[in-house]
């Protein structure tokens, strides 16, 4: 089973992917680290921010790891590296 979700890229991740958002088709049942790997396979440069990024699904933080997530059509995934400027 796959599902269509919108991915939003913020801060450095928008620069690395060259995108602010995209719609992708992914497995509807997967772990957060599998979701992340799917994104990295589309945008290999993302791997540079792997250890310092907040991943959110339906506007809720999810730790990157063996955490199961069920995606539904139209869900919002967000990739959020920290900003440090001021």
């Amino acid at each position: 089973m796959t599902t269509e979700v919108s991915v939003f890229y913020f801060a450095k991740s928008a620069e690395l992917t060259g995108l602010k958002s995209e719609t992708i088709r992914v497995a509807s049942e997967l772990t957060t680290v599998e979701l992340w790997q799917d994104l990295v396979s589309r945008h290999p440069r993302l791997s540079a921010v792997r250890d310092s990024v907040v991943l959110a699904v339906r506007q809720e933080y999810l730790a990157l790891g063996d955490v199961r997530v069920s995606l539904r059509d139209g869900d919002e995934v967000a990739v959020i590296p920290p900003l440090s400027g001021g």
Partner: peptide, 20 residues
């Protein structure tokens, strides 16, 4: 808690480089 590891230095953009 959110960012246990700092980003690699080359992944950090500052205001004088990135603009604001």
């Amino acid at each position: 808690c959110l960012y246990p590891k700092p980003p690699p230095p080359e992944m950090v953009t500052n205001c004088s480089d990135g603009g604001i």
